[in-house]
Structure formats: C-alpha cells, structure tokens
C-alpha cells in the first residue's frame, strides 16, 4: 500500500471500558468493535481493534469516550 496516509495507534485501558460503543460509531474507518468473546473486570464487552494498520490517528474515538479509556498516538 502507498504510504501517503497518516497512521495511528490506539490503546484501550481495557479493564475500565464500559462497552458503550460510542467509540465504535465515532471511528471514520470502522475498525473498532466490542469484543463479544471477552468480559472485562467491570462485566462489559470491551472495545477492541483488530486491524490497527487502518487507524488514521484521528482521535475521534477518544473524543467520544465518556470514560477516558483511550490513548491515541500518531506514527
């Protein structure tokens, strides 16, 4: 793939996620999902990203997260 676009990396503090899904609908490239295989310490399905290569580091997810679960870096 041509490397013109900005790349980002998102880290979730998974154990404090409330699985609300606001980050899921905020992501412009639709790479966030709730992990239905996992239940965190709070009892929720935490948000997760499989295809981090697609992340553009826009921080829309972190901007909408009510629980400050997300850290965003730009590569």
């Amino acid at each position: 793939m041509a490397k013109a676009k900005v790349r980002g990396k998102v880290t979730f503090q998974e154990d404090i996620c409330k699985g609300c899904g606001l980050c899921v609908s905020a992501c412009p490239v639709n790479i966030i999902s709730l992990d239905n295989e996992k239940i965190n310490a709070k009892g929720y399905h935490p948000a997760t990203i499989e295809d981090m290569d697609e992340c553009i580091g826009c921080a829309s997810c972190a901007t909408m997260c009510p629980d400050v679960v997300i850290t965003v870096e730009r590569l």
Partner: peptide, 26 residues
C-alpha cells in the same frame, strides 16, 4: 511516535459511576 490524545491531569484516577455511554463523562 507522538501522543495525540491522553487522559488529562484535570481528572483523578477514580472510575466514574456513570452508566455506559452517559455523556456526563465526556
């Protein structure tokens, strides 16, 4: 690698009691 979003020092480390998705948190 530059951090473009991280938690503010203006909040404590306490986890809020708000319901999932409640905008009080934002």
């Amino acid at each position: 690698m530059a951090v473009v979003f991280k938690k503010t020092k203006g909040l404590t480390d306490a986890q809020t009691h708000y319901c999932p998705g409640c905008t009080h948190g934002i």
